[in-house]
């Protein structure tokens, strides 16, 4: 490989001049390639961003964005003064972090395990089956979860069978967060594993063969070959999921929680939704959204810098 690199280098030097011209034309072609996408982005993403000023107004639809009264940072201050905001933030982050962490682990482990299945039919069927729950909305799945985890549900029947104490998953403040995280991992791990599977197929089987011949067992091969080659994609997806640290899954929580578990189950989005139900608080909703975006931006940028520092590879 080294030889080849050297060869390439000398080739580059020799052709520098000709190349220079090529790069210039290439440069404009690159701009042209970006153009259509950027136009769409301008129209449907950047122009609507004037709506961000709503966060600094008392926006009333009838007055419009030009006529509504400006209130500065009032909505942001108000958000931090809400009596339960500390609890709500804590819940949101714990639930979201748990989902990101366990969801990522679950999907990686599953994709590695699935890759070991050699019966093509079995492999394909299982892959199809695990991706199914992703398509069921929480409105539908919540009913299934409630049936399974209620006091007379199947989970408690199993616990009773083993002589264990029955657990009130849906009404207990200590069990509700694990329930949310667990059921979310269950719903999404199959779909999330798709990217990892695509990454695994990109690993050169020759490497595995060579390692096997060297006497490396399965575990060692996974650890030294499969995982390192998946690392860039794992890092990338982990970083891209960071902005979601304040999105703990509105639909899921909304369809599963009751006042009994507000203490550990109420998240930012459900809280804002309930406030919105009483007054049509567009401005407040926008302010919360911006706050979430800013946190997301800080996280994603610092993560990208960290990735560059430690792995010498920026992800975007």
């Amino acid at each position: 490989m080294k030889v080849q690199t050297a060869k390439t280098a000398s080739w580059t030097n020799a052709k520098t001049r000709k190349q220079e011209k090529k790069w210039n034309t290439a440069n404009s072609v690159y701009h042209l390639m970006m153009l259509p996408g950027m136009i769409f982005l301008l129209i449907f993403s950047y122009i609507p961003m004037f709506g961000i000023i709503m966060a600094f107004q008392d926006y009333i639809p009838a007055k419009g964005m030009l006529g509504s009264e400006f209130v500065g940072l009032e909505h942001f201050i108000y958000m931090f003064q809400l009596p339960d905001i500390g609890q709500v933030f804590r819940n949101t982050m714990v639930i979201a972090f748990g989902k990101i962490l366990l969801g990522t682990f679950g999907a990686i482990i599953f994709s590695i395990l699935l890759n070991e299945i050699r019966l093509k039919f079995l492999k394909k069927s299982i892959q199809t089956v695990v991706y199914l729950p992703h398509f069921l909305s929480w409105v539908v799945l919540a009913a299934v979860v409630v049936n399974m985890f209620s006091l007379d549900g199947i989970v408690n029947q199993i616990l009773s069978f083993f002589g264990l104490e029955n657990l009130n998953f849906l009404g207990s403040n200590s069990l509700f967060q694990p329930l949310l995280i667990g059921t979310d991992v269950w719903k999404e791990f199959g779909f999330n594993s798709i990217v990892y599977l695509a990454a695994i197929t990109a690993v050169d089987p020759g490497l595995h063969e060579a390692a096997s011949i060297d006497g490396a067992n399965w575990w060692k091969r996974v650890w030294h070959i499969t995982l390192p080659s998946m690392l860039p994609i794992i890092l990338l997806l982990a970083i891209l999921s960071l902005p979601n640290i304040l999105n703990a899954g509105f639909d899921q929580v909304y369809n599963l929680y009751t006042p009994m578990v507000y203490e550990t189950g109420d998240i930012l989005d459900t809280y804002v939704y309930r406030i919105g139900l009483l007054g049509r608080e567009y401005s407040f909703g926008t302010a919360v959204g911006i706050f979430k975006s800013i946190i997301g931006m800080i996280l994603i940028i610092s993560a990208n810098e960290m990735a560059k520092k430690y792995t010498d590879r920026k992800l975007f």
Partner: peptide
């Protein structure tokens, strides 16, 4: 719905529902 209800009503209702249960 008064102005304060719009701002704080959701929170008060949460308090009420939680404490009643």
């Amino acid at each position: 719905t008064t102005a304060t209800m719009e701002k704080k009503g959701a929170n008060l209702l949460k308090l009420e529902e939680e404490d009643f249960i």
